[in-house]
């Protein structure tokens, strides 16, 4: 086998590997939110998410081929007097002060089932996938790496406390 044949073979193998996405892997990262997000209609709390603080994400960010799925897991508590669904809204600013501003500027990416007054909801990975909305918006946010999430309730008056984390599954490589 001469040099040209070897080079051509290597080139074909490399082209096959790239074309079929063989040199990729699917991995899962967890963004843990240390503090709870405790919001009322008069006092919103948010979390500024920076995925670059996660080593696995930082290593692969430039090689992301697809954001495969995203789940919000943890506990949502309803401290209000009326049934409410917990909501997570995505935005790219931390200057929003009212639910109306968040709903105007942001995108709702998570909504829980209705939680009775004084009740709580435990959300596991499987359920956390099913409560995600506007997946393409949150996909884009994950690819950017930095975004802000706000915790809200879906009623006019609410008091929700969210002890949540984010699980992201990515495919990355060449």
């Amino acid at each position: 086998m001469n040099i040209k044949t070897l080079a051509l073979t290597a080139l074909l193998i490399a082209a096959f590997i790239v074309a079929c996405g063989i040199a990729t892997g699917t991995f899962t990262i967890v963004y843990e939110i240390d503090d709870t997000i405790s919001s009322t209609q008069a006092d919103l709390q948010y979390e500024a998410v920076d995925l670059n603080t996660i080593e696995d994400y930082q290593e692969h960010q430039d090689l992301i081929q697809s954001v495969d799925h995203i789940a919000i897991v943890g506990t949502v508590l309803n401290y209000g007097n009326t049934p409410v669904s917990g909501e997570v809204w995505l935005a790219y600013t931390d200057t929003l002060d009212t639910p109306a501003e968040v709903r105007s500027v942001g995108t709702r990416v998570f909504v829980s089932p209705v939680i009775p007054p004084g009740g709580s909801l435990e959300i596991d990975w499987q359920d956390g996938l099913s409560y995600i909305e506007n997946f393409s918006e949150i996909q884009d946010a994950v690819e950017l790496g930095q975004f802000v999430i706000y915790g809200l309730g879906d009623s006019q008056f609410f008091y929700v406390v969210m002890d949540i984390d984010i699980i992201v599954t990515l495919t990355a490589g060449y």
């Binding site: 079929c20 063989i22 699917t26 081929q65 697809s66």
Partner: peptide, 12 residues
């Protein structure tokens, strides 16, 4: 088995 996926990656 290699299953190329839409995003440019694959499942193996």
């Amino acid at each position: 088995e290699i299953v190329p996926t839409d995003g440019g990656g694959s499942r193996k």
